[in-house]
């Protein structure tokens, strides 16, 4: 079954692009972070304002100037600034960071236009201005939950989509032992390394990258199982003496990569 909604877009250049929609979870996470940042900024602003306004009024009192309407003006400015912070935060970041806010960057999602282009000021502004309406009674949340394209009202009006960010994953370097390197040099001659498919290589690489976080017993078992399967795939009789299953997998990984096959791995593209 498909766990994430996908969408295929046709760009103005008639190129088909496929995106994975952001999903309610990532959007809630992004919103949680963004609203905390906005709230924190607003608290700091109001504290500062209270302090500055107090000082100012004290100063004017000391000068015995009749300042009459000043407090009302200060309040008006404060309300205007509050609105600017609350809306401007989203507009500013979504425009300058190509559809991302701090929360969205953390949640690895991005706003794009319906045709796949990056959003501009009008879209970001519409989304931000309609945000309060989406927040009333959680209307936006229901729209995202129930709609096929996961659009809240702001998205419908602005013509935008929120999708998962396609970001090349920076993986930890794989530590390879000396014994593995020696074996890797022999493997192309002694085995049918070409029988290993890019998908198989991807699995081995995935294992080697993630093994450090694995629980000890489960890791040993998995390593042994993968090593046996890999050995069968490349038609090797026995794993050389004195080599652990991990070292054997490292050797296969290295040999395959040196052969130039690694670049064709499916998730490298």
């Amino acid at each position: 079954m498909r766990l994430f909604n996908r969408i295929t877009l046709l760009t103005p250049e008639s190129v088909e692009l496929e995106f994975t929609l952001a999903g309610i979870g990532s959007r809630a996470l992004a919103l949680l972070i963004d609203y905390h940042i906005v709230a924190f900024t607003l608290i700091v602003f109001w504290l500062l304002l209270t302090f500055v306004a107090g000082q100012l009024l004290d100063y004017l009192d000391a000068l015995s100037v009749n300042y009459g309407d000043l407090p009302v003006w200060l309040l008006a400015i404060a309300i205007l600034v509050t609105f600017t912070i609350a809306t401007g935060y989203f507009v500013f970041f979504e425009v300058t960071w190509q559809g991302q806010t701090i929360g969205k960057r953390f949640a690895k999602i991005r706003v794009i236009r319906d045709d796949g282009r990056p959003i501009g000021l009008p879209q970001a502004a519409l989304r931000a201005l309609l945000r309060p309406i989406d927040d009333i009674l959680f209307i936006g949340a229901f729209f995202i939950l129930l709609g096929k394209k996961e659009k809240r009202i702001g998205d419908w009006v602005a013509g935008t989509l929120v999708v998962q960010e396609v970001r090349p994953v920076v993986k930890a370097a794989i530590a390879i032992s000396q014994a593995s390197e020696n074996l890797a040099a022999e493997l192309p001659q002694t085995t049918h390394l070409s029988k290993l498919l890019p998908d198989d290589f991807a699995v081995i690489r995935e294992y080697l990258q993630r093994r450090n976080f694995m629980e000890h017993n489960a890791k040993s078992e998995l390593s042994l199982q993968l090593a046996r399967q890999a050995r069968n795939l490349i038609s090797l009789e026995t794993i050389p003496q004195g080599l652990t299953s991990d070292e054997f997998l490292e050797a296969v990984y290295l040999a395959y990569q040196k052969q130039g096959g690694g670049g064709r791995g499916r998730d490298e593209g």
Binding site: N5, G23, A107, K108, L145
Partner: peptide, 11 residues
């Protein structure tokens, strides 16, 4: 990712 766990569960 965190958000995707939640989305996947809901889906």
């Amino acid at each position: 990712d965190i958000g995707n766990v939640v989305s996947a569960g809901i889906q």
